[in-house]
Simulated assay, not measured.
Amino acid sequence: MGAAAIGAAMQLVALSAALILDLRACSGGTPEGAAMCCSYFFRDDQVHLDDFYERSTGATRQFWTTAHLPAPRYADRPVHVLTSAMTFSGGEDVAYTPQAHGRAVVVVGETTRGGAHPTARHPSSRPAANDRLGFRVKSGCPPRRDTPTSVQASESCRARATPACPARPDRRAEGCADGQGRRKPW
């Protein structure tokens, strides 16, 4: 999603009392898009969200909350994120980052697949298949230092969003804790 689409969605929910983000079928996204989404959940534009280390250059890119957003921030109300084993890449980043920063985001569902890292496409070496065949290889790593499950300590560089309230996709989550540790019947 681009900034305009994210802004339009956030404008629609601007007056709601709480937000439920359904990321159960979200299989991708960019670090820039995830940072834009996450920016709505923080009060100011000076929150360091994440870093991505790029192997090919040895450089680390920082991602911060965005200063100017096309819709009002959603920093003062509860945010609940639904995840599944299919949630991947940018969807994981949107679920994980606010949770890791103590934004009181409640993640409900299954542990995500662990692919919130940049990749690079490598085309086939065969000229006839070059435009149709290729493969993607992990090209970087998000060195998250702010949680006990830091991916910097993990050789696989896989950050998974772990639900505070585990639930199978076909069942309702029962009696889970909200962001303040209170039991809630979702």
Results as ranks from 00 to 15, higher is better:
residue 8 A to T: 14
residue 135 F to S: 14
residue 111 T to N: 04
residue 39 S to W: 03
residue 97 T to Y: 02
residue 21 L to T: 00
residue 138 K to L: 10
residue 143 P to C: 10
residue 27 S to Q: 15
residue 176 C to F: 01
residue 65 T to C: 05
residue 104 A to Y: 05
residue 9 A to W: 02
residue 57 T to P: 01
residue 23 L to R: 00
residue 107 V to W: 01
residue 126 R to Y: 07
residue 29 G to F: 01
residue 136 R to K: 11
residue 39 S to H: 03
residue 139 S to L: 08
residue 14 A to F: 08
residue 86 M to W: 10
residue 82 L to H: 02
residue 28 G to Y: 05
residue 167 A to S: 14
residue 60 T to I: 11
residue 60 T to C: 06
residue 62 Q to Y: 03
residue 136 R to Q: 13
residue 26 C to E: 02
residue 16 S to L: 11
residue 106 V to I: 11
residue 147 T to K: 05
residue 14 A to S: 15
residue 43 R to H: 07
residue 40 Y to H: 06
residue 62 Q to D: 09
residue 120 A to R: 15
residue 162 T to S: 06
residue 125 S to G: 13
residue 79 V to E: 00
residue 118 P to Y: 01
residue 132 R to Y: 06
residue 116 A to H: 04
residue 159 A to S: 15
residue 97 T to I: 11
residue 52 F to H: 08
residue 11 Q to V: 04
residue 74 Y to D: 04
residue 32 E to L: 10
residue 137 V to H: 09
residue 56 S to T: 12
residue 23 L to N: 00
residue 178 D to Q: 07
residue 55 R to C: 05
residue 160 R to D: 02
residue 117 H to K: 08
residue 86 M to A: 15
residue 79 V to T: 07
residue 164 A to S: 14
residue 109 G to E: 01
residue 149 T to K: 14
residue 100 A to H: 12
residue 92 E to N: 14
residue 164 A to G: 14
residue 115 G to P: 00
residue 76 D to H: 12
residue 35 A to M: 08
residue 101 H to I: 03
residue 30 T to I: 06
residue 112 T to S: 07
residue 158 R to H: 11
residue 133 L to S: 13
residue 42 F to S: 01
residue 6 I to D: 01
residue 107 V to S: 00
residue 117 H to Q: 11
residue 131 D to T: 14
residue 58 G to V: 04
residue 49 L to V: 01
residue 114 G to F: 02
residue 17 A to F: 06
residue 127 P to K: 13
residue 111 T to G: 05
residue 44 D to S: 12
residue 38 C to Q: 05
residue 138 K to Q: 15
residue 79 V to G: 02
residue 151 V to H: 00
residue 5 A to N: 13
residue 149 T to M: 07
